[in-house]
Amino acid sequence: MADSNALITDPLLLECLQVAERTRALCHELLTLVETNTPTDSTPLPDHIFQEKARKQKQLNTLTAHLKSLHRTVILQAREAKEAVTEKRKEVDRLHLLLQNLYYEQRHLRGEVKACRDFPHQYTALPLIPESEFLEQHPEHGESTPHELMIARLHNEKAMREDLERQRKELLAKKQALIAENKRRKDDLANLDEQLQMFIESAKPIQATFQKQY
């Protein structure tokens, strides 16, 4: 009984055990009373023994009824506890499934993050000026985070390339203008040569006349 009480803490179960123990003890007392006072002949039991037996029998009936009531209450309580445990188990299973889904989603997101980090982004292949040189030219970015610093370097590279593209277009326009000017002058020289040749041809009769006179 002591070991059972050490393992069981529910008040209703403890009461049930205590009533069962009292019932068992009363049964032993009643059996002992009957066995030790059983007459060897047809002589009836003495009145005090008979009254004691009736009193103990009445107590036993009361304890048995109480024990049945406690047993019924314990059964109902156990059934309710079982239903509660079932509901809690369902909730635990649901939370466990949710946790597994979150774990799988976390693993998927980590895979996506790793894929993004390992992806050969185009900006990593750009010939940016060294970070130290950029910071020397733009000291205002000295306290920037690596992400902010990279964005600033990319913007700087974009601005430099746009400026170089503008200069390239200006030089190309100057080149085209010079080519056009050279072509115009070449055409002018060609026209001048043609006019000079025509002048020489037209002057030949005059030259012949002068040669005849002298």
Rank of each mutant, 00 (worst) to 15 (best):
A2N: 07
D3I: 12
D3P: 11
S4H: 07
T9H: 15
T9D: 09
T9V: 14
L14A: 02
L17A: 13
Q18I: 08
E21P: 01
E21L: 12
R22K: 12
C27T: 09
L33W: 00
P39N: 05
D41T: 08
T43F: 01
H48K: 00
K58H: 13
Q59K: 02
L60N: 02
T62F: 08
K68I: 15
L70R: 04
R72Q: 05
R72T: 14
R72H: 12
T73C: 06
V74L: 07
I75R: 05
A81R: 09
A84N: 07
V85C: 08
R89C: 15
K90H: 15
V92Y: 12
R94E: 15
L95W: 05
L99F: 08
Q100S: 12
L102A: 07
L102F: 05
E105Q: 13
H108R: 12
L109S: 07
V113P: 03
K114N: 09
C116V: 09
D118T: 14
P120D: 10
H121C: 06
Q122S: 13
Y123F: 12
L128I: 10
E131V: 03
S132Y: 04
E133C: 06
E133N: 08
E133V: 10
L135N: 06
E136P: 02
P139Q: 00
T145E: 11
E148W: 06
E148K: 05
E148C: 11
L149P: 09
L149V: 04
L149T: 03
M150G: 03
M150L: 15
A152P: 02
A152F: 06
L154K: 04
H155W: 12
E157I: 00
R161V: 15
D163L: 04
L164K: 06
E165W: 07
L171D: 02
K175D: 06
L178M: 15
R184D: 10
D187L: 10
N191L: 09
L192K: 04
Q195L: 13
L196Y: 09
L196V: 14
Q197H: 10
Q197E: 12
S202Y: 05
A203D: 14
P205I: 08
P205K: 00
I206Q: 08
Q207V: 15
A208Y: 13
A208G: 05
F210V: 13
Q211T: 13
K212P: 03
